[in-house]
Amino acid sequence: MRLGTAIALPTITPVGEDVYRATNVRVHRGGRDILGGVDLTVRAGEVLALIGPNGAGKSTLLGALSGDVDIDGGEIQFAGRPLRDWPLAEQARRRGVLLQDNQVLFPFTVHQVVEMGRAPWRRTALEEEDNEAIAWAIDLADIGHLGNRRVPSLSGGERARSAFARVIAGRTGVLLLDEPTAALDLKHQESVLGLARDRADAGDAVIVVLHDLNLAAAHSDRIALLRRGLIAAEGTPEEVLTAEIVSEVYDHPVEVIRHPRTGRAIVVPIRD
């Protein structure tokens, strides 16, 4: 994947201003609160990582922000308007969503999958950018060599990168990514998150769910650490990823050291 191509695409919010503002957001399912009253802001020009133990509510919160999960209380503002007031077609042109379950079951080619990311722009003036946007996304996701291969024949990592290319082909200005590195090897984990960083530097808002705390530390501007449907800590990686906070939330002792060159946190489990 080629990094450093910070193409300035149209954004909906000036850098540094709120794209999302969630206030007391609650989601109740199966007799329990998945989200128990979450307050969160997401700003243009930053990478915000959502981390936390399994079942903490990370994917539910991302789904609520994207409009794919109905909330049972509170409010979400998107670009200064209540999210519920945005027509679905208009939302699709302003935020791209990569879900955990991004499997494509039909035998589409890689090119056809990426082309799906341009669907919201059909019958608009920006439809003229389709070919350029598709080629750009394929290049950045490092899947040009896959040619016309069909999705069922791809490895898990190749499918994940194809799905990622589909999302960025939309050129929306907001990216919501649910565990985009889960099926990727080391090189492509770094490349995908490097591209997310690149898009934030170009003015996009990027919200990414991650399990790997060290990836979150290395690539995010801010971290929201969830536990049992609530935000246990929020701030810079240095503020959130302390031994005390991580050990308590994950119920396992850790130590946090600093990278000798970058100064970023490295979380190391303490083992007997």
Rank of each mutant, 00 (worst) to 15 (best):
R93Y: 15
R159Y: 00
A49H: 00
G73D: 11
A44S: 12
A265P: 14
Q91H: 14
L215F: 01
M116H: 10
A89H: 11
R161H: 09
T60Y: 11
I51K: 01
H259K: 07
R29Q: 13
G235F: 11
R261Y: 14
H219T: 04
S220T: 06
L215K: 11
V256K: 05
D221V: 00
A135T: 02
G229Q: 00
R95H: 02
R26M: 04
R197S: 09
V27K: 09
R261L: 10
R26E: 03
Q112H: 15
V254M: 04
G170Q: 04
A196F: 00
R199L: 15
R123G: 09
L241G: 10
G229R: 01
D68N: 09
E75F: 00
G194M: 03
G57W: 05
R227H: 03
A217W: 12
Q189F: 12
F106C: 03
E17C: 01
V267A: 14
I168A: 02
I231M: 01
A232M: 09
A202F: 10
L186T: 13
G147Y: 15
R2D: 12
A232Y: 08
L184H: 13
G80Y: 04
E239T: 00
E129F: 11
Q103E: 15
V192D: 04
G55Q: 10
A92G: 02
V15P: 02
G229D: 08
P152V: 07
P53V: 12
L146C: 01
R32I: 05
G157Y: 08
E158Y: 05
N148Q: 15
G147V: 07
V254A: 06
V97P: 05
A182Q: 12
L184A: 08
G55T: 06
G55V: 11
A125W: 02
G45P: 03
R118A: 13
T60A: 01
S153I: 10
A217Y: 10
L35T: 07
G63F: 04
H211A: 13
A224H: 06
P53L: 01
T5Q: 14
G67H: 15
R271D: 10
V209I: 02
L241S: 00
